[in-house]
Design a protein around this nucleic acid. Structure first.
Length: 454
RNA sequence: GGCCCGGUGGCAGAGUGGCCAUGCAGGGGACUGCAAAUCCCCGUACGUCGGUUCGAUUCCGGCCCGGGCCUCCA
């Protein structure tokens, strides 16, 4: 069995992955806050950790992958108010859209998708433990985490408490004992979501939910915690403080895995710059599989610059992959074969998807030369990468209804007749007319003509 | 200001102390009625200045540039 290596943000080094329980690997990833359609930056961790989960399932007998759904949040409250829509309606509608979009990107659902609204009990229990352990205090209706009470605070982000305060942009509320302290529980107004607690009606702070949900579903200590680099501080740092503070002697997550930031046209994606794209925007321009490939063409830790040219390039690469599958196996799905070693090795080396893809291209070249085994290997590799699982015919001709398909076949027949009588002007006119509608014809050696979308 | 990433050929993007990445785009050729696809061939690549070394894109240091975090953010 291949040995998996992962870059652990805690040590900043690539380490051999050794699970706590080799019989059951447990991973937690920060999921979406459901207040609006997912943007392409949201899609990156989903796809990256989908590949990691698929890989872990190949390597270990049992994997539990937990990704939370944040359905209590100030942004949600604000969006619901702006839309004049009940909060529950907004979150369930947005969650459904998220599920659809991520499925379009080929991401499998996690094993468990806990919601904050279903985790209030564990959140309160966790806060009570923190108070009992001297890491939290009640002040002015709030419960706050006492950062100075945790001597090891700042290990993940390598930031001392003094450095944080030097940033001077922390909100120094009067009820805080220390400027670095953060909210675990805060009072709620009657018009906003709230739950009864020992500290009155209120709602949880942002960070506590992940500590509570991971604890509930994976225990106080588990293998991998994933998320975007931008969450390293303060979110992940605070999660560690909360969880290890509530359960002294435990280490919370053993491996912290962070995906790099996504930019658009060299700039940070933002609504004000006009370069903000949702997954839906992209899906109007290209198949989800092409967007997935864009996300996997860059190593997960590196910054990724999204451009429409890259999306086109990814589609062109997939054309070649599917052509190879079609050439070697006629589109037949091969029986279960192992993932080719070179691909597996690349993925096990800190999820090196760009290298794995280059090896997929090498298999593609062999498949184009007629090597059916290479094609089967591509399919197998695709099960880990979440690519190449379609029938090539669907990839090349998806989105055309039966009527259009029949029309194209008619045009092909007419062109065949024209070619038979050497009327190449007419034959080329027919082909040009189809090309103008995005349909490309290919004359095969045997005399057959096939079509595909451009 | 503090902490942290990254700078590879037209573009994207791996990797390595001395020899091929890979893909896309481009040029030439084969094939084709012409195309498309495929195959073959081609292009001074490693931010910069020093250091270590027989030899550095690869190791070390300074500098320059880009980006992230320090506030909601994947």
């Amino acid at each position: 069995m291949s040995q998996l290596f992962l870059t652990n943000s805690l040590t900043r080094r690539k380490e051999a992955f050794v699970p706590i329980d080799p019989g059951h690997v447990r991973i937690y990833v920060c999921g979406p806050t459901v207040y609006d359609y997912a943007h392409i930056g949201n899609a990156r961790p989903v796809v990256v950790f989908d590949v990691l989960a698929r890989l872990l399932r190949r390597l270990y007998p049992r994997v539990t992958y937990v990704r939370n759904v944040t359905d209590v949040d100030d942004k949600i409250n604000a969006a619901a108010k702006a839309n004049n829509e009940p909060i529950g309606a907004l979150t369930s509608r947005t969650y459904r859209a998220f599920v659809e979009d991520m499925a379009a990107l080929g991401a499998l659902p996690p094993d468990i998708e806990p919601r904050v609204t279903e985790t209030i009990g564990p959140i309160i229990a966790l806060i009570e433990r923190l108070i009992a352990n001297g890491h939290a205090y009640v002040a002015d209706g709030h419960v706050l985490f006492s950062v100075p009470s945790k001597l090891d605070y700042g290990l993940l982000s390598r930031r001392s408490r003094d450095e944080m305060i030097a940033g001077a942009r922390v909100d120094v509320a009067p009820y805080k004992q220390d400027p670095a302290d953060f909210v675990l529980w805060k009072p709620s107004t009657p018009d906003l979501p709230g739950w009864d607690s020992p500290w009155g009606r209120g709602r949880p702070g942002w960070h506590i939910e992940c500590s509570a949900m991971s604890w509930r579903h994976l225990g106080p200590e588990f293998d991998i915690h994933g998320g975007g680099v931008d969450l390293t501080f303060p979110h992940h740092e605070n999660e560690i403080a909360q969880s290890t503070g509530a359960f002294p002697g435990t280490r919370f997550a053993r491996y912290w895995v962070h995906n790099g930031f996504l930019m658009v046209n060299g700039e940070k994606m933002s609504k004000s710059l006009g370069n903000f794209f949702t997954v839906r925007d992209v899906l109007k321009m290209a198949p989800g599989e092409a967007m997935r490939l864009v996300l996997l063409k860059t190593h997960y830790r590196d910054p990724l610059d999204f451009t429409w040219a890259r999306l086109d390039e990814a589609r062109a690469e997939l054309d070649r992959f599917y052509r190879a599958l079609e050439a070697a196996s006629g589109g037949e799905v091969a029986p279960d074969v192992p993932v080719p070693g070179p691909v597996m090795d690349a993925l096990c080396d800190d999820l090196n998807t760009p290298l794995a893809l280059s090896r997929l291209h090498e298999l593609g070249a062999a498949a184009l030369a007629g090597d059916a085994g290479a094609a089967a290997g591509m399919r197998a590799a695709g099960t880990v990468l979440g690519l190449l699982q379609q029938d090539p015919a669907d990839w090349f001709r998806a989105g055309t209804d039966a009527g259009l398909a029949a029309e194209i076949e008619q045009a092909i027949a007419a062109r065949r007749a024209a070619r038979a009588r050497k009327d190449f002007t007419e034959a080329d006119r027919i082909r040009k007319a189809l090309a103008d509608r995005g349909i490309v014809l290919e004359d095969k050696p045997g005399g057959a003509t096939v079509w595909r979308r451009a």
